[in-house]
Amino acid sequence: MEAVATDNTTQGVAGALDQYLTFMLDGEEYGVDILSVREIRGWDSATPVPNAPKHVKGVINLRGTIVPLIDLRERFNLEPLEYGPMTVVIVLNVNTDKGEKTMGIVVDAVSDVYSISADDMRDPPDLGDSVDTNYIKGLVNVQEKMVILLEIDRFLNADRLPTSSDYGLDA
């Protein structure tokens, strides 16, 4: 719903601003819609989920709710980084086919909050079939830096979290 609403406003009214929370990942700056951010917390050890894909670091207890954590570095096939005091978990509300889910993404560090107009957003260049740009909402220039805006609903949803049965065969 939120995504739809923001889409409408950005397309309908020129210059309407959306706020994005940006974070660092391997030197690049990524942004997510701030309305989907529930909280930001430090990294705390998670309980591993049996037979989960590598990027699912486990589940944590978020005030009585069980929330899975996803390492975005490993999700993007980047070199994993040792978790340190700067490692941050961004807890997001994600709309999936099965309703709203709460998930945490592990990132290197939280950066800033930018107000970005839809007009300034550029579509990602076509990188060929080898790179799936489906979950990139757009690229935007902020103070001469490129920020990659993620379509978080699509990205965590289309990427269905595989169950162990998918992995059972190659185990």
């Binding site: 989920v49 069980i66 889910k101 709460t102 979290l161 169950t163 162990s164 049965s165």
Partner: peptide, 14 residues
């Protein structure tokens, strides 16, 4: 008992 499926998926064996 808390559900894993609320925010994640059904996990085999759990």
């Amino acid at each position: 008992i808390k559900s894993l499926e609320t925010n994640y998926e059904k996990v085999d064996g759990v």
